[in-house]
Design a protein around this nucleic acid. Structure first.
Lengths: 396, 396
DNA sequence: GGAACTTTCTCCTCTCGCAGGACAAAGATG
DNA sequence: CATCTTTGTCCTGCGAGAGGAGAAAGTTCC
């Protein structure tokens, strides 16, 4: 199932491919407006893209008052695979070259079972998507994993919640299995890239993307580029101290943000409240499902349950407190909140906003939107597709 | 006193100028090793630099086993002015094109007197340096101010400790007065650039530079570039909450880092301890000088005074706590501690290290040096010279 | 001191990328 | 249908720059 996709031969072609990816079909003339090249040179490069099959002609463009131009678009059969591995579930999606999601699968999964088991599942899901006629094969794949990654090699390093993954050559192994180029990154970074490509962060160069799921992480985008840090662990804010001498955390310290607010902490707090009979709503849900998750808390809060609302508010205060510090430090132009707890919605957002606007200096917060991500489940997989397309749409 | 210095005509010349700035005199052959150009092209560009007077021939280079080459160096009469405006004093220095400090003046000053008064003093100091024969004129000047700066325009914005400076066109005004190009930046960013150019951070691409003086700030370098944030206030960590419900701060909140540890806070704590008779050492210094500063605390600590040591340790803990969070977030390759309190030395450093190494995850701290800056007073002015030289040594 | 080898510098030529103009094609306008 | 505008194609000429030949200047070893 190996596909021999061509690569751009020079920086101009790479530039054109990105324009077509981000702007959709475009006429030669429109491309000329966006790129600083003479018409002759542009024609040559576009022709080469058509020759190599990376782009195709696609009907006539709308007239701009004179001769009508033919549209150029990226090859419609190009397919990227986006994989977003979480702690307890995995998302796999197929996109076209414009990074539109054509098909999306989500399945529960346990990352602790190790890379071999997980990738078996991922490959099966990819095969299913292919079998459904969405793709003949994949031209590239982006993989997000919930832990630090040595980016150039595509290898997880010392991931706390992923025992058995340390040093596993994800990039190499999957490239072998899928028969296409693969890039690997932290799941939070991919979410940030996704929101930047197609979500709320379009056209924002410096922003933070806080993902609150089983754990808490933060994607950092500076000058349009993801900042990964020297060991790939940048954005690992789950173990910043939020409460002095607070709850013990799995990492060995006390008061870590993640110990006080995250999907896992929220579920535990809800369970406790239900068992102590503090909340009828939560208790009912516990007996109904046998367990409680963030979703239950969200539902209880929506139903007006005071305890659930209190838990969300308190958690939001803690997250907001940490974010306030990061805002002072980083001075972003936008803060995006995403991840599993997005369901907690505006109660959470309000708590976070309150803390940030109160604690950071006016200059930093004056024009700082704090918003929920708008791509939801798709953010990670779109970011993954974006990652590999950035790689493929660059000079060889 | 206007000087009509030439600018590099293209990217190659700019590249060469930077190589000569950072590497000192070099033969054509050595330059050829560091730049990817054919010998003929290199010769042409070097000749043009010699023609325009930006570089000069300078004797014979050491032999590398064959014909000896003539050295090329930057014009020896090029002069940059580096100005580092603090809260209570100002540093002005002259450097040559290689950014070596040829002369340095430091004077007390009160930034609250406003830009007009301060710049009168700065210009007088610059004139003094010029009169002493160090410079015939200045080819460029870098200015550091203790507050946020809208970088492209070189204008301070809403600086908390600099009333009267908000919106003052520093760049334009000084460019007029000095008759040369001027760039303006936050003083902490310049300190970071200084340590990167000639100090401990040489060859480190991602690091943090924490400056503890009257206030506290942090220079952020990511991928070799200073990160300034969307409003120029990045690195403003003085008002991150270090102690929940802690001391009231001038900003209106409670528990800000700056309220608990900074030159100002330390002096106040020392005064209190002396007045309460807790420390004989500090009390003696108080009666001797009539006031106490960080220097007194440092001296008392050096003499073994328990209270002084305690103050430093406690402050270091607070700073360390905040830095620990930033390290988790940013994952730098180095942390530099600098500014006025460097005199507190290893007691402070030990406290900071303890906190950071204990609170951040091993992956982020595993190979993370935390060190004192090595340029001291010179860091800011060297960074300022670096700033303007980066500007001038880039294609026009 | 001399022969052989290295390194450096200069000059010359050849190639290639690319801009920009001329012109043709195709459509819009009235 | 005449005219104007936009788009596509072809051609020429310029300039950047690579790379080779050879001269100049040193070093090393016998």
């Amino acid at each position: 199932m190996r596909r021999m996709t061509a690569r751009p031969a020079n920086a101009h072609q790479a530039r054109l491919l990105r324009l077509l990816r981000d702007g959709g079909p475009n006429s030669r003339a429109q491309l000329g407006d966006q790129i600083d090249l003479s018409r002759s040179k542009l024609a040559v490069e576009v022709d080469r893209l058509l020759e190599t099959g990376l782009a195709v002609a696609d009907g006539l463009a709308a007239s701009r008052g004179g001769r009508r131009s033919h549209n150029i678009r990226l090859a419609p059969n190009l397919r990227f695979l986006g994989v977003d591995i979480g702690a307890t579930s995995v998302d796999v999606a197929v996109t076209n070259a414009e990074l539109e999601v054509l098909g999306h699968l989500n399945q529960p999964m346990d990352v602790r079972e190790g890379p071999v088991v997980v990738f078996e599942q991922v490959l099966a899901m990819a095969a299913k998507l292919r079998a459904s006629g969405l793709a003949e094969g994949f031209d590239g794949a982006g993989i997000g994993v919930p832990g630090p990654v040595r980016f150039p090699e595509g290898v997880p390093v010392a991931p706390p919640i992923m025992p058995g993954w340390d040093g596993f050559p994800v990039r190499e192994a999957l490239s072998q299995e899928l028969g296409c180029p693969v890039m690997v990154d932290n799941d939070v970074n991919l979410m940030a890239m996704g929101e930047r490509h197609a979500g709320v962060a379009r056209s924002v160069g410096d922003f933070l993307c806080v993902k609150i799921g089983t754990g808490i992480g933060c994607g950092i985008v500076a000058g349009g580029e993801v900042h990964r840090g020297v060991t790939g662990s940048a954005g690992d804010i789950g173990h910043i101290q939020a409460v002095p001498d607070g709850r013990p955390c799995a990492c060995g310290n006390r008061g870590c943000l993640e110990a006080h607010f995250s999907g896992a902490a929220l579920a535990r707090d809800a369970l406790e409240a239900a068992q102590q009979g503090l909340s009828a709503e939560l208790a009912a849900r516990l007996t109904a499902n046998g367990t409680l998750t963030g979703v239950d808390v969200a539902a209880a809060a929506a139903a007006g349950d005071a305890i659930a609302l209190g838990l969300i508010r308190e958690g939001g205060n803690h997250v907001g407190q940490v974010i306030a510090g990061l805002v002072s430090f980083f001075n972003p132009g936008l803060v995006v909140i995403g991840g599993g707890v997005t369901g907690l919605g505006h109660t959470l957002l309000a708590a976070i906003r309150t803390q940030v606007y109160r604690q950071s200096l006016p200059l930093a917060t004056g024009n700082l939107p704090i918003v929920l991500g708008e791509l939801g489940q798709n953010a990670g997989v779109i970011g993954a597709a974006r990652l590999i397309s950035d790689h493929l749409f660059s000079p060889a």
